[in-house]
């Protein structure tokens, strides 16, 4: 099967609806994944990637890889992937010259059937790294 791969710009942002502190305070392990393990992309990119055929996005940067749910959002510009700041987005952010790199980063985005990482798996990954 043909693998569709596209270069995107990743921006991590704070959104009230997808706020990590709120989810840790009031949510549970399920809502953490639902609200934070997501990425917003433009509907045109959504169609281009044929995201309706496979449910999840595999986003990879120079710093790491994460599987999250892709959501179409017309407010996001084409070629951009927007993720709420969280332990999920920070799997693919990094450090350069002692500065955090969490915006305007080039990333590769594929569609995938792989499962979304839950909080426990990310914590174990951090422990074992």
């Amino acid at each position: 099967m043909e693998v569709i791969k596209t270069d995107f710009i990743l921006n991590t942002v704070r959104r009230m609806e997808n706020d990590q502190s709120k989810e840790f305070s009031f949510g549970d392990k399920k809502s953490l994944v639902e609200k934070l393990a997501i990425a917003f992309i433009n509907p045109k990119d959504f169609d281009k990637l044929n995201l309706s055929s496979k449910p999840n996005l595999k986003i990879s940067s120079n710093f790491g890889i994460i599987i999250v749910k892709g959501i179409a959002d017309e407010d996001v510009p084409e070629g951009t992937v927007l993720m709420p700041i969280s332990i999920w987005s920070n799997q693919i952010t990094g450090v350069e010259n002692s500065e955090l790199r969490y915006k305007n980063m080039r990333v590769d985005v594929d569609i995938t059937e792989e499962k979304i990482n839950d909080l426990n798996s990310l914590i174990n990954k951090i422990k074992e790294a």
Partner: peptide, 16 residues
């Protein structure tokens, strides 16, 4: 504060 959420994985793993 919650640095394990806020910081990139490369730093979180060192903190851990």
């Amino acid at each position: 504060t919650d640095p394990i959420s806020h910081f990139p994985m490369s730093l979180s793993s060192k903190l851990a």
